[in-house]
Amino acid sequence: MTADAHELAGLSTTGERQAVIGATGAAPGKDWVIVTRGIRRDYDMGGEVVHALRGVDLAVRRNEYVAIMGPSGSGKSTLMNIIGCLDTPTAGEYWLNGVLVSAMKDDELARVRNREIGFVFQTFNLLPRATALHNVELPLVYAGVPAAERKRRAIEALERVQLADRMDHRPNELSGGQRQRVAIARALINNPAILLADEPTGNLDSQTSEEIMRVFEGLANSGQTVIMVTHEPDIAAHARRVVVLRDGRISSDERRDAFVSKLAATI
C-alpha cells in the first residue's frame, strides 16, 4: 500500500508515527490529533505502587479509526481515561489537537473534555431523570451556549441518529440501542476532535451492536476521528487500526487487515 492509500484509509505510516513521537517536547503538526510520549501512570494502592501504564507512545492522525484492545489489567482503561482527559499521566507528554494537556489543571481539563472529546460509554451514562433532548444538550450547557441554540443543535444531533421522535423520552423509556445513539448524539454535539468510545457495545445484543458499529463506521467515513476501547476482537475488527496493550505497554499496532488475518489464523 502506498502512502497515498494509507492517507485515504485514514492511516499513517509507522515511520511518520515514529518521527512525531520521537520529537519530545515539540508540538506535533496539525494533522496529529493524539500524540503521547512515554505516558506512565502509577497508582499508589496503600503503599504499594501499581504501574498501570509503563510508557505508552501513541500517535493518531486526524480521521483515523483506532481500536485499543487488551486483556483486563493491560491498562487500556487507564489509557482511555488519560486520552479522555479524565485523568492525568504520572509522567510523559500528551498532546491533544496540538495542545499539551498532560500538565493541565482540573478546570482546564474540564474545558478540553467539553470542547475536544465526545465520550460514549459501555453503560451509556445518560442522566436518568433527564429527557433524551436534555441529555444531548448537556455539553452545550457547560459550553455556555444559549438555550435556544442549544435546543436547535440538540434536535439536529438527534435527527442525525434517527431519534428526533424520541427526544422527550427519558433513558428508561428507550431501548439499549436507542440509549447508545442518544449518547453518540451527545458525544458529537460539540464537534469534538475525537470520539472516544469505551466498550460501546458491551451492554448490547449482537444485532444492536452491529447497528451501533454501522453508526461508528459512518462517522469515521465522514471524517470523524474515532478511538474505541474494547476487548472483543470482532468489534475491534471494525476499526482500521488496532492497537493492542499488554502490561501497560503497546504490544502491537497494526492495520486492520493484518489484525483480521491474524485473528483468522488463531481461529
Binding site: L86, D106, A110, R111, R113, N114, L126, R186
Partner: peptide
C-alpha cells in the same frame, strides 16, 4: 457524567 461532559468544579 457531568464532569466528563465538561462541568467544571
Amino acid at each position: 457524567i457531568r464532569k466528563s461532559l465538561g462541568a467544571r468544579r
